[in-house]
Design a protein around this nucleic acid. Structure first.
Lengths: 347, 347
DNA sequence: TTGAAAGCGTTACCAA
DNA sequence: TTGGTAACGCTTTCAA
């Protein structure tokens, strides 16, 4: 059933039917009702392609994922973000178009998606400290919002990010308050903006107490179980091993835990772990009270906000860049001090 | 630059230019070259929407993800699958359209995506033992391929699946060979087809030795770290606790390991774990030789095959249903017997 | 408040 | 081998 047929059934012109369905004011209430009724009855849905061609709007948002970036697509953060963004798109009648590209083709993919005109805007995932995509998109004039930020880029782009610097600063401060002085950082790859910021936060907290970060206690790499394990194993072999670990992901924390296990050490007794991720709800304080983070659900929230921001910009024709900084909470597993409360960490 | 403008530049009709660019045979080699050259020079890309409207093909494949289904979107398996499918779509010039829907709206989403005509076919994710989506899609006449299978459905649909039954049967047999008699199964939700099959495999291996599964040693639920932990903790409290665990996911295995840790038990000495997932490369046998599975990369391969099958069906106008059964390998962490070799399991 | 007609950028049919 | 024209299904301008 298409518009013409529906109009014929109603004895109206396609024009009027279109107007009635799209909420134009100049159509009488009576016809609007008749039309709506008939549309429902015949289960009429306007053809997307035709609508797109006529309006010149793709009604779709692109997400371009570099293939090799295991960091992104295989990252639970990515999935949660996509879920959040997808909710918003669905409500607004937009499609979400995912494009998987080999890294080498990334630039071509952006240009192509632009000239083919099958998306109205783009979400940039996993920004690096120095990221060639932002100037490229600026040049193309394609509306975009970055999930994250890029330290090396000209400001002036729109973004939604979590406060990684402060989160890690706070977490480090928390461990310092518990008396730890040898704190290890098991970080993500530091060409990624988020990891660079986490390291800054870590170093800032140490510096605030007049401490310098020990390079032997800092490691950066793919955030896997194996990374956490190998890093912790090696560090625990040092003459002056760490008494606490700060990790950038759940998987790394799992690996650290395995290294402790292999040495018959216990979290909270011999060592503390603080990790910036969710899923660690099971780390409990002395009162068997779960201490957890909002990371996972807040990533979904970030997805929602990112998508909403982009749609707003598209529909209002962009304008001044916008930004949105979410505060992250942290998972804490440590019981050598007083049982930490969520509120200790959230502000 | 659109087709008309390009044609004008060349002094040709849009028709001819279109034919030249789309490889129709009836255009002379000379003009084909001229056109190709000009297209490159002006960086011409045909407008997707117009092409779609004219051909009646959306050049897009839909993936509909129910929102609440944490099992899917947040599942690393999902991400790997998407990555594999995305590769194939990109090569074939198709878009991948992800739709996130509240569970209650799932049927409506399928109907809508169909009547709006913005996809040419659908991949069905996470089939249940009894799944209403398959008859619905059949009724709509929308081409689809299932990632997985549905025990309760009429055969006659196309699918790509991993041999879950046999994988778990083999893993169970492996533990039995090592002498274990009390084997626990920490499974996924058993209304999901894959989990039902895994359980069948488990029970079949026991039955083959004349053993019956002990209900107290079987648990099914969300495959999280917490699930694995709680299940293992409770089972280890039984008067006759398990000596081995078979888990359906990496996260569950992590939880089982934590439960062991809390009891100062060790894998390989006190207990064995076999899990159907990747990332457990770190479970090493006595010779410190990693024993690992291909699951993760094979999920990507499944994504590729699923996508390729669907595109083939769309382009050839479907026909007899097709299927593709991949053999799964398994992660094994156990050292109470002779060091297991990968080939022992892959047979 | 309604309708006729043009237009969006392609492809596809029929002539030349 | 090429070109003119209709068609795809909708929106939008202009008239009535």
């Amino acid at each position: 059933m298409n518009l013409k047929q529906l109009a014929a059934e109603l004895g109206l012109s396609p024009t009027t039917v279109s107007r009635a369905l799209n909420g134009y004011p100049e159509v009488s209430e009576a016809t609007r009702l008749r039309v709506a009724e008939a549309a429902r009855h015949y289960n009429y849905r306007p053809n997307t392609q035709a609508k797109r061609l006529a309006t010149g709007r793709a009604m779709a948002i692109g997400h371009i994922i570099p293939l090799s970036t295991r960091h992104e697509i295989v990252n639970p953060v990515f999935a949660d973000f996509i879920a959040g963004a997808g909710e918003v798109y669905a409500r607004a009648g937009y499609d979400m178009v995912l494009t998987i590209v080999p890294d080498s083709d990334e630039e071509r993919a952006y240009r192509e998606v632009h000239s083919k005109g099958n998306v109205d805007g783009i979400i940039v995932h996993g920004p690096k400290v120095h990221d060639a995509r932002l100037p490229l998109l600026e040049e193309l004039g394609l509306p975009f919002v970055v999930h994250g930020r890029s330290l090396g880029a000209d400001p002036g782009y729109s973004w939604v990010d979590v406060n990684n610097t402060r989160a890690f600063e706070r977490a480090t401060g928390f461990l310092l308050d518990l008396g730890h002085r040898r704190i290890a950082l098991v970080n993500g790859i530091e060409t990624m903006d988020f990891a660079a910021r986490r390291r800054h936060g870590f170093e800032r907290a140490l510096a605030a107490r007049g401490l310098a970060a020990d390079p032997a206690l800092m490691v950066a790499g793919e955030m896997t179980e194996a990374q956490g394990h190998d890093a912790a194993r090696d560090m625990l072999d040092l003459p002056d091993p760490p008494t606490a670990f700060l990790t950038a992901s759940f998987l790394s924390a799992m690996g650290v835990r395995r290294a402790l296990w292999e040495r018959d050490m216990r979290m909270g007794r011999d060592v503390s772990i603080v990790t910036h991720d969710d899923e660690l709800g099971y780390l409990r304080n002395g009162a068997d009270e779960p201490i957890f983070t909002a990371t996972r659900s807040s990533v979904r929230e970030a997805g929602r906000r990112c998508a909403a921001m982009l749609l707003r910009r598209i529909e209002t024709g962009a304008g001044a860049p916008e930004s949105d900084l979410l505060e992250a909470t942290l998972v804490v597993g440590a019981s050598t001090g007083p049982a930490p409360r969520r509120s200790d960490l959230t502000d």
